[in-house]
């Protein structure tokens, strides 16, 4: 399931709902991204997440479909927020449920890595010098590329 929303989410309730009633699930893996008050050495107060409505949902849906194809998952969930966020706020939740531990852990890792390079979101950080658009990191491309290599079997 995909959700793109301005509102916060209840992590415990979301994770519970993911496995609720399905006793074939052996493990639930999750990752929650939070707003840090220190990015690349600069103190930031808050940030605003801009996104591309329509394409965002399309890309997240495709990323999720890819995970469901690669791993035996009983359920998956991606929630990504947009709008203004304060330090400590939840930005994103990725969660996967599977009969098997490895499938849950790997697919969760895959989802957040791919989302970081494919989902059209942009962070505008409040800094002492004003709003700064965050630069994409090469390390994110490398993290996503790792999964591409695995898919090629190389």
């Amino acid at each position: 399931m995909i959700r793109v929303q301005r509102e916060d989410f209840d992590l415990g309730a979301e994770l519970r709902a993911l496995s609720d009633g399905d006793h074939g699930i052996g493990g639930v893996a999750s990752f929650v991204g939070l707003v840090r008050d220190m990015a690349a050495g600069e103190n930031i107060g808050a940030m605003t997440l801009e996104h591309y409505p329509g394409m965002t949902e399309k890309m997240l849906g495709r990323i999720e479909a890819e995970a469901l194809e690669r791993w035996p998952l009983n359920a998956s969930l991606i929630i990504h927020r947009y709008g203004r966020l304060e330090p400590g706020d939840q930005i994103v939740l990725v969660a996967t449920a599977s009969p098997h531990r490895e499938a849950a852990l790997e697919s969760c890792h895959f989802l957040i890595d791919w989302l970081k390079t494919k989902a059209p979101f942009w962070k505008l950080e409040d800094t002492p010098d004003g709003g700064q658009w965050v630069d994409a990191r090469d390390s994110d491309d490398e993290a996503a590329a790792r999964w591409r290599k695995q898919a090629d079997g190389s």
Partner: peptide, 10 residues
């Protein structure tokens, strides 16, 4: 057609 920098969400 949309123009944007590399994405930085997540």
């Amino acid at each position: 057609v949309a123009l944007f920098p590399p994405v930085t969400g997540g």
